[in-house]
């Protein structure tokens, strides 16, 4: 029990020092940037942060994840200096926040690589996702039930998908709800009758590493896809860094660095598309 008593002073010390953590609004020269938000962007921004730290000794970039909505909320509340949002800012958000795109990420449809279906029209995609088409047969596929993989509420990929196909989430008849891109890829790779949509970057990497999926091009009347080369996805989203209207100088410097050509190699290494210089 003596050991038990020894903890008491330690606890008091812990309690006394509880207020000493760095919070974004501490009034001292800023050396630690807090960035939260999109889990899609986090690995890329963390890598850019490491390069930024090497160029600015003494500066620390702390990257946290939790989703785009969290990036917006934490930037507003002041918990983070910069938010990561993997879509364009909405009109309402632009009233108090400023967004700077740093890269682009396309979204593409994926199916298992044994699925004989070659391409889909937007109308067919809508039918598949709203329950109008429940087997693959009408699109000259196998006579098997379609397993529809949708994204969870709050995911930027879901919002983009719904907007592009003029759908609401309530109309979608999903069999499986997933969170992250990798989860979607793993699910589709393990289910020959599934269809899902994920970040092109993640799909690209999976294809190169022989994961059994294939990308499904969208055909439109005007532009049929060239063989072997899926047309540039119209379903693309900007990966955006957001701040309040008056960000600290360090945050501005970081965003300028993240949007510059100094990090294009990192953007490409994470399978995103660098912005034109």
């Amino acid at each position: 029990m003596n050991a038990g008593r020894a903890w008491i002073p330690l606890l008091l010390v812990l309690a006394a020092t509880a207020g000493c953590g760095d919070s974004p609004d501490a009034r001292q020269p800023l050396t630690k940037l807090s960035i939260t938000g999109s889990s899609t962007m986090a690995p890329l921004i963390a890598a850019i942060g490491k390069r930024f730290e090497r160029r600015h000794p003494g500066v620390r970039i702390d990257v946290q994840t939790g989703g785009s909505s969290r990036g917006v909320a934490d930037t507003r509340s002041g918990l983070a200096h910069i938010g990561m949002v993997s879509r364009a800012l909405r009109a309402l958000e632009q009233r108090d926040l400023v967004g700077t795109p740093v890269a682009r990420d396309g979204i593409g449809l994926i199916v298992h690589n044994t699925n004989p279906v070659g391409a889909l029209t937007p109308r067919q995609v809508v039918a598949l996702y709203t329950g109008g088409m429940t087997t693959w047969r009408p699109v000259s596929g196998k006579d098997a039930s379609v397993v529809v993989v949708n994204k969870a509420e709050g995911r930027a990929t879901l919002e983009l998908f719904l907007k592009y196909f003029h759908l609401t989430n309530a109309e979608i008849r999903a069999d499986v709800i997933i969170g992250d891109n990798e989860q979607g890829i793993k699910f589709v790779a393990g289910n020959p009758h599934a269809i899902g949509y994920v970040s092109n970057g993640a799909a690209e990497y999976a294809l190169r590493h022989e994961v059994p999926i294939k990308r499904l091009p969208l055909t439109t009347a005007s532009a049929p896809p060239a063989a072997g080369h899926p047309a540039p996805s119209p379903l693309a989203r900007p990966l955006t860094l957001v701040t309040t209207r008056r960000p600290p100088a360090l945050a501005q410097a970081f965003i300028a660095f993240a949007a510059s050509s100094h990090v294009h190699d990192l953007v490409a290494a994470h399978y995103f598309v660098p912005l034109a210089a």
């Binding site: 509880a18 207020g19 953590g21 760095d22 919070s23 807090s34 918990l79």
Partner: peptide, 12 residues
């Protein structure tokens, strides 16, 4: 993290 101001930390 927020109320006690510990932020994202090992302590929190």
């Amino acid at each position: 993290c927020v109320t006690l101001g510990l932020g994202f930390s090992i302590m929190s």
